[in-house]
C-alpha cells in the first residue's frame, strides 16, 4: 500500500506511541481489506476517538434541559426524542401522529429551533435545551399563541394542536409570519385533518400583529 494511502488511518491506529513498523504495516494491511475486517479487531483503534461507545442493549447517559428543568437520563440509542418525552418523562403534550416527520404533531423546540421530535434520536441532543408545549405557558398564564388558538377556535379534535402551537411560535420568531401566504407556507409541516387551517392562520396573524413577545 502506498504511504499516502495510509496517512489518515495511520493516525487513528497508532494506539501505542511505540508501535513498530511491523505493527504499522500489519494494521495498514488490515485496513486495505476493510470489507473483511471483523468488528472485534477495531476496538483498540476506536479508543482514540472522542466518542461514547454504547454496546448493543447498553444505555447511554444523556443530559437534557427540558422546559427549564435539568435531567440526567439514561437512554437506549434507538429511542427518539419523542418517545423519551412521552414514555420516560411523561410529557405527553407532545403528540405522536405519523411518527415519520410528515404531520408535525411532535414539533418541539431544541435550542430554540423547531423540529420533529419523532425523527431525531434523544442521544443526539446531549447538553441541549428542549421546550415542549408544557413549557410554553408562564405558570397559570397561557402563552399568547395558546390564548389566540382558543380565541380563534384553531382546532377541533386538538390532536395536532401542541405541534401547531410550537410551530406557530417558531414561525413568528423566525420572521416568517408576514402574510397569510407566508404563514401557510411556513406552517405546511403541520397537518390538521380537521381542517382548522383558516383559524390557525388567523390566530398566528393576530399574535404577530399584536406585537407581543413570543
Amino acid at each position: 500500500m502506498e504511504k499516502d494511502q495510509c496517512s489518515v488511518p495511520d493516525e487513528n491506529l497508532n494506539e501505542n506511541s511505540g508501535s513498530s513498523r511491523r505493527d504499522f504495516l500489519k494494521k495498514s494491511t488490515f485496513l486495505s481489506a476493510i470489507a473483511l475486517t471483523p468488528v472485534s479487531l477495531v476496538t483498540a483503534a476506536e479508543k482514540e476517538m472522542d466518542e461514547k461507545l454504547a454496546a448493543v442493549f447498553e444505555k447511554v447517559p444523556l443530559k437534557l434541559e427540558i422546559n427549564g428543568v435539568k435531567h440526567a437520563l439514561s437512554v437506549e440509542p434507538r429511542v427518539t426524542l419523542l418517545d423519551l418525552l412521552r414514555e420516560q418523562l411523561q410529557l405527553t403534550g407532545t403528540k405522536k401522529g405519523c411518527d415519520h416527520g410528515q404531520c408535525g404533531a411532535c414539533t418541539v423546540h431544541v435550542n430554540g429551533k423547531r423540529q420533529n421530535s419523532c425523527l431525531t434520536l434523544a442521544v443526539m441532543h446531549d447538553g441541549k435545551k428542549v421546550t415542549t408545549i408544557e413549557g410554553l405557558a408562564n405558570g397559570a398564564d397561557l402563552h399568547p399563541m395558546q390564548e389566540a388558538f382558543i380565541k380563534h377556535d384553531g382546532f377541533q379534535c386538538g390532536y395536532c394542536t401542541p405541534g401547531q402551537i410550537m410551530s406557530a411560535v417558531a414561525c413568528i420568531r423566525e420572521g416568517h409570519a408576514n402574510s397569510e401566504t407566508e404563514i401557510r407556507e411556513y406552517m405546511s409541516g403541520n397537518i390538521c385533518r380537521c381542517g382548522a387551517y383558516p383559524n390557525i392562520v388567523n390566530a398566528i396573524t393576530e399574535v404577530k400583529n399584536g406585537g407581543q413577545k413570543v
Binding site: V8, N12, M49, D50, E51, L53, P77, R78, V123
Partner: peptide, 11 residues
C-alpha cells in the same frame, strides 16, 4: 438495536 458513537473530527 445499534451502537452509537460520536466523532469529533472527519478523520
Amino acid at each position: 438495536q445499534f451502537q452509537y458513537v460520536r466523532a469529533t473530527t472527519a478523520k
